[in-house]
């Protein structure tokens, strides 16, 4: 808690005495930025909801069960049996059903669940880095920051693989074999925007990681910079919770 703020006022970034929110200027600004970013993502997800709601419900699949055999012509066959049509939104389990190194098997949502676990886990390592920062434990902070970077990079790798598979099946911004044109377009825009946030987060984490190794924050006397990138990183995880809900579950 601030007690001597007024006496050494000129040194501090936050003028005008005690901070009304008991957080530093930088952290408050990070929160305000995250709020505005939350609005941006909300708008994208609402646009998704609006467009999706303007099409008919997905036709429920009663043919393909999990672990079923998948043929090479799967997407075409689904079109032939009337599960992928222009008027109906496609059921996500029939679109996102691939897993790396497992060929020819219907594994709905397995891969995206793995991505979700990776991101949750990297959020945990991030918050452990913040916790270690409170104790001024430099080695622990750097260890957990490193694990967070690995988690973020793993998530990005997964997303690159998923996009490659999706594009390989014929999805573009202006058309796809699964159903309405906007289905793939929205997928690329929203997961792309989220992926770009993850990428920026990984870059920020790398910068902070090197600063930690350099002892910048040890000299400064606090690890608040780790907390700030931590806030951003958790926000990216938070957005993924909703992207996961709206794009894959609903």
């Amino acid at each position: 808690m601030a007690t001597n703020t007024l006496t050494t006022n000129s040194k501090f970034t936050w003028g005008g005495g005690k901070s009304p929110f008991s957080v530093s200027y930088g952290k408050l600004m990070m929160w305000i930025f995250l709020l505005s970013d939350a609005f941006t993502f909300s708008s994208l997800l609402i646009a998704y909801g609006f467009i999706r709601y303007s099409f008919l419900e997905p036709i429920r699949n009663t043919i393909v069960k999990p672990f079923n055999h998948l043929s090479h012509e799967f997407v075409k066959e689904m079109g032939d049996v009337g599960l992928f049509v222009k008027d109906h939104w496609p059921s996500p389990e029939l679109v996102f059903n691939h897993f790396p190194f497992v060929h020819g098997m219907h594994l709905p949502l397995f891969f995206v669940s793995l991505m979700t676990f990776i991101l949750i886990f990297s959020s945990v390592t991030m918050v452990l880095a913040v916790e270690a920062g409170h104790r001024m434990a430099k080695d622990e902070v750097s260890k957990y920051m490193f694990l967070t970077i690995i988690g973020g990079a793993a998530f990005l790798g997964c997303q690159a693989w998923e996009w490659t598979t999706f594009i390989g099946e014929g999805a573009t911004l202006h058309g796809n074999p699964f159903g309405p044109t906007s289905f793939a377009a929205l997928f690329f825009i929203v997961t792309g925007f989220h992926g770009f946030h993850v990428f920026s987060g990984v870059m920020l984490n790398i910068i902070i990681y090197f600063n930690v190794l350099d002892g910048t924050y040890q000299k400064r006397g606090h690890y608040e910079m780790v907390e700030k990138v931590g806030l951003y990183w958790h926000f990216v995880d938070l957005v993924w919770v909703f992207v996961f809900t709206f794009f894959y579950l609903i």
Partner: peptide
């Protein structure tokens, strides 16, 4: 995530409401 990971549960109520309440507009928009 917001409460524990982002530490919001332990921050001042004023900060919490400043950040959380504007999200009401999102519900309206939805």
């Amino acid at each position: 995530i917001v409460g524990v990971f982002m530490h919001m549960k332990f921050e001042k109520k004023a900060l919490m409401y400043t950040i959380v309440l504007p999200m009401v507009f999102v519900i309206f928009f939805v």
